[in-house]
């Protein structure tokens, strides 16, 4: 049995750190996808910058609300992986 204090600490770290990393990575991905679809890059970045806070908020709330922490954990990992693999698929960025 995992002690309650450790569980809480894990959730806080996952929500703040993991949520931040996942939001940041997914919006880097979104910006790449939108520019690839033809949106000017300044618009793509700005749109992401407004939406990213809403995603981060939802992720934080979800991590704290979920009964088991594993589902949010894997989804966050997936978002982070997707965001960081994007540069290999989109080369026209710079």
């Amino acid at each position: 049995m995992v002690p309650a204090g450790l569980k809480t600490t894990a959730r806080i770290l996952l929500a703040l750190g993991g949520g931040y990393w996942a939001s940041s990575a997914s919006f880097a991905l979104l910006a790449r996808v939108l520019t690839a679809c033809g949106m000017p890059r300044v618009d793509a970045v700005t749109l992401g910058m407004m939406l990213v806070f809403i995603l981060y908020l939802c992720l934080i709330l979800w991590v704290f609300a979920a009964r088991r922490v594993w589902l949010p954990f894997w989804v966050l990992c997936g978002l982070i992986a997707a965001g960081h693999m994007a540069p290999f698929f989109f080369t026209q960025g710079h």
Partner: peptide, 10 residues
């Protein structure tokens, strides 16, 4: 959130 800027701007 500088990541998307860094992704698209040098």
């Amino acid at each position: 959130f500088p990541a998307s800027i860094n992704a698209l701007y040098p």
